[in-house]
């Protein structure tokens, strides 16, 4: 059985869009619980992809391909997961690029890798006002907020978002992390956020640490 998991993991890392869903379907039809396929092949595969991206062994197009293969696998398993009472996850993450900023590439990568790591991701998109973050945290009962900014001019919105979460009384139950080219660990500390991601793989590591899932 472990052999099947290893093979799915390998195909996922290779970004094989045909084989991954096909192998997931076969494994499920052979009676392997969908949750187990997810936990023992797809999540570990994306974990490797995230690490290899961090070390520079894999590049963005390859990560996107693996993420797509993961989605194709999930699609096959979805109905079976629902039958079994739904997929468990590490927690809800609300992601968004802050107000005034339209950059979404980094944020999207973080979202894909977080999903791949087992978080439930609510991606708000770009140009997200502090109050939109606040509303989403309440609505989805999020454990973590991930803010992205690619412009020095929009970085102050990160601080405003942290403050807005505090004013809404949510800061006690939600961790906040920030990332994007101009963002530094020092800045994250200054604005009172909890964590920093230097890249998409690093963001996933930080998220896991913050939520005690590492």
């Amino acid at each position: 059985m472990s052999d099947v998991f290893t093979r799915i993991t390998e195909e996922l890392i290779a970004g094989n869009l045909k084989e991954v869903p096909e192998m997931c379907r076969r494994a499920a039809e052979d009676g392997v619980p969908a949750q187990e396929i997810l936990d023992k092949s797809l999540f570990p595969g994306m974990e490797v992809v995230g690490q290899r991206m961090k070390t520079g062994e894999m590049f963005i197009p390859e990560v996107l391909r693996s993420a797509k293969a993961m989605q194709a696998g999930l699609e096959v398993l979805k109905d079976r997961l629902v039958d079994a009472g739904g997929s468990s996850h590490l927690g809800v993450v609300v992601l968004g690029t802050v107000q005034g900023d339209m950059h979404d590439i980094g944020k999207n990568l973080v979202g894909m890798l977080m999903e791949g790591a087992g978080f439930k991701v609510v991606d708000l998109g770009v140009d997200i006002k502090p109050e939109q973050f606040v509303a989403a945290v309440s609505e989805h009962d999020a454990a973590l907020v991930g803010m992205s900014a690619l412009l020095t001019t929009t970085m102050p919105k990160m601080e405003e978002t942290v403050k807005a979460l505090a004013e809404a009384g949510l800061r006690g139950r939600v961790k906040v992390m920030a990332g994007g080219a101009p963002v530094t660990p020092k800045f994250v500390e200054q604005i009172g956020a909890d964590g920093y991601g230097a890249d998409a793989g690093g963001a996933v590591d930080t998220a896991k640490q913050l939520l005690g899932a590492a």
Partner: peptide, 8 residues
Amino acid sequence: VQPISTNQ
């Protein structure tokens, strides 16, 4: 210009 790594 947008990166080809995210969309060919």
